[in-house]
Amino acid sequence: MMMKFVQDTPSQRVVFGSGSLAQLAEEVARLGLSRVLVVATPGHGARLAALASDLLGSSCAGVHAQAVVHVPRAVAEAGIAEAARAGADGVVAMGGGAAIGLAKAIAIASNLPIVAVPTTYSGSEASPIAGTTDGERKITVRDPKALPKTIIYDPDLTLGLPPAVSAASGLNAIAHAVEGLWIAERTPISCAMATEAMRLFADALPKVVADGNDRDARAACLSASWLCGIVLTSGTALHHKLAHVLGGLGMPHAETHSIILPHVTRFNLDAAPDAHERLCDTLETNDPAHALGVMLSLFPIPQALREVGLPRDKIGFVAAEAAKLNIAAPRSASEAEIRGILEAAY
């Protein structure tokens, strides 16, 4: 069949390198901002936010270290209110997916530009996709306002990342790349990025889990996560839809992606020969789903959905919700088939 695609790459400035956090104030000023709200998670995130505040000086309108994974509606509303109270003209997101997710919610509601400083491998900073949770449901939107204007990648900020966080966020990013190889919206550019990201992660992620101070491997993982985030912009399919439904039930985001990845991959690859070939090449295997499962098993993170708190009696609900989305690429998935994937991952 003749190739047919649309490539729509949003504009975004990326500053990458060891010590690049020092350029934060310069990058904020470059956007014409003078009162930015720094958002982060509590604890370690709050300490990073304080560092950002010091670097920003009078350009910092305040620190809001209340980000929570999946961005519950109340958390989003509190962040939006704080940005308004502070008179912020922009948002600096310091941290991983939770901090960046909150910054996106604020940006969408308040039309404020974002400068993202990622400290994990979620890749969210490179995508205009944003999500919040309301009760047991996760609501995702695609909005240009959610795409950070500038990303500052400083591998030094990831040196203290614990092995479990490195592993889970890395596998989360790998899920973006794997799914990007079989979505209907894939393009030659997105597939090339996904393939390169997989090559980088396959080599570097085990290294940073074993030795968090491996600077070259940390930089490679951060570069790969950026590529994965761009790939995510192209579109999503069964894997991400399942993860979002599970996220609405409070399952941890990165760990959930990690657990279901080998199982969704096994289900889809027979219908995705190009993805199969690329993954065999980058993972140096004849069975990519098995290789991803082995990678998961070697990392110090939960291995099954029961370990992250999914009640077995919710499997039917998750399968029904995902089946309603009528996913067709690279193959359709019935409610019974989705239930089978979840049972295998349980």
Score class of each variant (00 low, 15 high):
residue 246 L to N: 02
residue 241 K to G: 10
residue 222 L to D: 02
residue 233 T to N: 15
residue 231 V to N: 08
residue 218 R to T: 03
residue 248 G to T: 12
residue 235 G to S: 14
residue 218 R to G: 00
residue 218 R to F: 06
residue 218 R to C: 00
residue 241 K to T: 14
residue 208 V to G: 02
residue 213 N to R: 15
residue 242 L to D: 04
residue 209 V to C: 11
residue 238 L to Q: 05
residue 227 L to P: 05
residue 226 W to V: 00
residue 206 P to V: 00
residue 248 G to L: 12
residue 225 S to Y: 12
residue 220 A to L: 12
residue 241 K to F: 08
residue 234 S to F: 15
residue 214 D to H: 05
residue 217 A to P: 06
residue 228 C to F: 11
residue 207 K to N: 05
residue 238 L to R: 07
residue 229 G to Q: 10
residue 243 A to R: 03
residue 236 T to E: 10
residue 228 C to T: 05
residue 228 C to V: 05
residue 239 H to P: 03
residue 207 K to M: 12
residue 237 A to P: 05
residue 206 P to G: 01
residue 220 A to W: 06
residue 238 L to H: 08
residue 231 V to W: 12
residue 229 G to R: 06
residue 212 G to T: 03
residue 211 D to S: 05
residue 247 G to A: 08
residue 219 A to K: 04
residue 240 H to Q: 09
residue 237 A to Y: 02
residue 232 L to D: 05
residue 224 A to I: 07
residue 222 L to N: 07
residue 221 C to E: 06
residue 232 L to N: 08
residue 206 P to N: 00
residue 240 H to G: 07
residue 220 A to M: 14
residue 207 K to T: 12
residue 229 G to A: 09
residue 233 T to V: 00
residue 213 N to Y: 13
residue 216 D to C: 03
residue 226 W to S: 13
residue 225 S to E: 10
residue 208 V to M: 06
residue 236 T to S: 14
residue 247 G to V: 09
residue 207 K to A: 15
residue 208 V to Y: 05
residue 245 V to I: 12
residue 221 C to T: 01
residue 242 L to H: 03
residue 248 G to R: 13
residue 238 L to K: 10
residue 206 P to W: 07
residue 230 I to E: 14
residue 215 R to S: 11
residue 239 H to G: 03
residue 238 L to E: 01
residue 221 C to F: 04
residue 214 D to I: 02
